[in-house]
Design a protein around this nucleic acid. Structure first.
Lengths: 255, 255
DNA sequence: CGTCCGGAGCACACTGAGTGCCATCGGCCT
DNA sequence: AGGCCGATGGCACTCAGTGTGCTCCGGACG
């Protein structure tokens, strides 16, 4: 299903826009919105576009592909982007930037993206197809990270996990923007989500010994301009509960 | 594609095994291994199994489903497992345990799992289908975490990212075991991978709402048998730094 | 005992996606 | 003109998946 080489993808970036492709996409979306994806046959689409049925499958390997006409090119761009990376790039930051390429594609056509989002939410077949597209992005990120982490212990594991986290964060931000019908700042939403991931996987936090219990006191001179004084008395509770308690107390404003 | 309610899934756990289903799976796999998935038609399968074509689709909503005959039941089990969770369970640990349910299913039939792995690697259509299955697991984990994190800032983001990371880690460990033809210890591989994730996301390491300043003191009687006493003096540092400091002080396993 | 009933299976026909093959058309080069 | 070539259209075919109506079987009920 749509894993074969696409004769069109090259044209996507170089050609001065073959009209056939565009008119097929336009006709398809018109019908999809009007009467639904599954209620629209390929024959309906080609009839509306005024072209032969065979031509449809020359431009799109499957009916599902017409819903994602731009992802193939975007994946190519992402691969190039990662391929151009140098050793000076911080890996996690780099894959976040790569993810932003995808966002940019969505943000370029808000109306189209929102329409497609509504379709993919309703139609299970399209959701599955989208999954396979996203998977290829994730693989691209993971492959890049594997290269950067090669030699390190658990390199591939780290790579896979970070790639998955970046994709999940990207999608979280993207979808919150799509749910708002493309109003608002897509970049801001995704930046926020990606920042979260970057914080979590920040370049090699310094490891600490596992706590064996007891009481601790710590002082830490603020690195920038703040100071933090923390006193924690530990009485057998698991660490996560202590931290949760602190967060509950300090954080979480009203709702 | 396979999102409709399955009439068989209930039978999966309760019935004393309908022979039809088993014989279809057996016939299908025999042919898939012999001549490949795409080279095998549903008619071939039903001919070998000696049943009617229509019966195949009564047991399996699609040809792809016959390759994953047990996932539906496993997803049900996972949902129950997560539903039974109490507030005493540490969320990340809980979803890791949920992921181990999936591993167990694979580990119960090493030979079958390895065969299926080889198939899904070769056949793009099956890979896509597997993606949709994995996605449902991931959604189950994410939904659970969203519930646990609800109210917290970035709760859904954290939930989505952690779910994705857990799935990625699980798959990483699982696949390393599958690549070794099911020899070796599957649990050990996955435990190792999941431990990595738990270390990264360990109890709540991340920022929470930005504080509004001031000093706080909190006391919380332990819900079960522990008590936690926390005193935090806040001097303008962002909350995340406070939390980070506490975590660093109390300890955490080395990377 | 006969009959009725419901579920499981089957045969058949039909839709629609996707493919292979060949004819056609239009430009373009020599 | 004539021939080449890439793009297109038409047609026939395979195969997945679905709807329908039939049969067969076993158990319940009169």
């Amino acid at each position: 299903m749509s894993e074969a080489p696409r004769p069109d993808q090259a044209a996507d970036v170089s050609n001065p826009k073959p009209p056939m492709r565009e008119s097929l996409v336009a006709a398809a979306f018109q019908l999809f919105v009007e009467r639904g994806y599954e209620q629209t046959t390929v024959d309906d689409i080609v009839a509306l576009a005024g072209v032969g049925r065979r031509s449809f499958f020359r431009y799109f390997p499957s009916k599902e592909d017409v819903v994602f006409p731009d992802h193939e090119g975007c994946l190519t761009r992402m691969t190039s982007f990662l391929g151009e990376s140098g050793p000076g790039h911080e890996p996690v930051e780099r894959v976040c930037d790569a993810a932003r390429l995808v966002l940019r594609m969505y943000a370029e056509n808000p109306a189209f993206s929102v329409q497609r989002y509504r379709l993919t939410r309703k139609v299970p077949g399209l959701r599955t197809y989208e999954l396979s597209v996203v998977w290829r992005y994730e693989r691209a990120l993971a492959e890049y990270l594997r290269g950067r982490f090669s030699g390190r212990p658990d390199g591939t594991l780290r790579a896979d996990v970070i790639a998955a986290a970046v994709v999940a964060a990207h999608n979280n931000g993207l979808r919150s923007w799509l749910r708002a019908d493309g109003r608002g700042d897509a970049s801001a939403a995704v930046d926020h989500s990606l920042a979260h991931v970057q914080r979590v996987f920040a370049p090699e936090r310094n490891p600490v010994a596992d706590g064996t219990g007891g009481a601790h006191a710590a002082w830490n001179g603020g690195e920038d301009d703040d100071e933090v004084v923390v006193v924690v008395s530990r009485r057998g509770a698991p660490l996560w509960r202590v931290v949760q308690e602190i967060e509950t107390t300090l954080g979480r404003g009203p709702a």
